[in-house]
């Protein structure tokens, strides 16, 4: 475990030593701030209209659904773009620089290496996500009210989904020594899985359910409504675990190349 921690702290330091972490976090926060303020503007506009036109339906016109629910979805989209950038160098750079040889000839096994890197990316992801809490404090400060339960479950959903993204990102980074390839593959694959939810209406009914079940976005929707379902948690955990193992296998298989 101390070796996992050694790799974790090496990679976290390396994120913050290079400008990667700062750039990714800054852009993420800028975009999420932009989406937050846009959602707020729309919300106040509709609220104003609703108050002057009493026959308009006010269903769903509350801060929790209209602002935060929107923000959660928008953050998902930003993560889809940002996490591949965060994970692309983790394995690719070790291979390109040859340091993988150094790393894997220390008395450490592949699982520990991948776990250390996974946790490092997870840590940066958490650091990136936490400042979005300021949106909530801002809402409170402005006198808004919202449901904390929905916020908590939404946060859990975002975190689980982010970890799933990271797990796949590390796997695609391990495929080659080229960081760009790592990023493109992870972005492409995640986007594809994301869009499965949309095609579920067009495929034969037998597959519709299946397509939905595999979709990355379908499982996070419930979290954003404040519903924490075991099925959804299991989906993300399995997804994360599956690609974690695949990365470990990929590293082990490299030894047997012939």
């Amino acid at each position: 475990m101390s070796r996992v921690f050694a790799i974790f702290s090496k990679d976290v330091k390396s994120y913050f030593f290079s400008i990667t972490a700062y750039i990714v976090i800054t852009i993420f926060l800028t975009l999420s701030g932009f989406f937050f303020s846009t959602a707020m503007s729309y919300f106040s506009l509709y609220s104003f209209q609703a108050s002057s036109q009493p026959y308009l339906s006010t269903e769903g016109l509350n801060l929790t659904d209209a602002v935060l629910g929107n923000l959660f979805f928008n953050i998902c989209v930003i993560l889809l773009l940002m996490i591949p950038v965060l994970t692309m160098r983790l394995m690719a750079e070790e291979q390109k620089e040859g340091t993988l040889e150094l790393l894997l000839t220390y008395p450490v096994n592949e699982k520990e290496v991948v776990l250390g890197k996974f946790l490092a990316a997870g840590f940066v992801f958490a650091v990136m996500l936490l400042p979005t809490m300021t949106h909530l404090f801002l809402l409170r400060w402005l006198g808004g009210t919202f449901e904390w339960g929905v916020v908590a479950s939404g946060g859990i959903g975002l975190f689980l989904m982010g970890m799933a993204f990271i797990s796949f990102g590390i796997f695609s980074s391990s495929l080659s020594e080229n960081q760009i390839i790592g990023a493109v593959i992870s972005f492409g694959f995640l986007l594809l899985l994301w869009m499965l939810a949309w095609v579920s209406q067009f495929v034969p009914p037998a597959f519709a359910g299946l397509a939905g079940e595999f979709s990355l976005i379908r499982h996070v929707e419930d979290f954003f409504k404040g519903i924490v379902e075991v099925k959804n948690i299991v989906y993300y955990l399995l997804f994360t675990f599956f690609f974690f193992l695949l990365t470990v296998w990929r590293l082990e298989a490299r030894k047997w190349v012939r």
């Binding site: 070796r3 090496k10 330091k13 993988l100 008395p107």
Partner: peptide
């Protein structure tokens, strides 16, 4: 091959931890 963004000292600290 070495971790080019680390200092000599932090790299050696990493190595002793990795070597257990």
């Amino acid at each position: 091959p070495l971790y080019k963004d680390m200092t000599v000292e932090s790299f050696l600290k990493f190595v002793v931890r990795m070597k257990g």
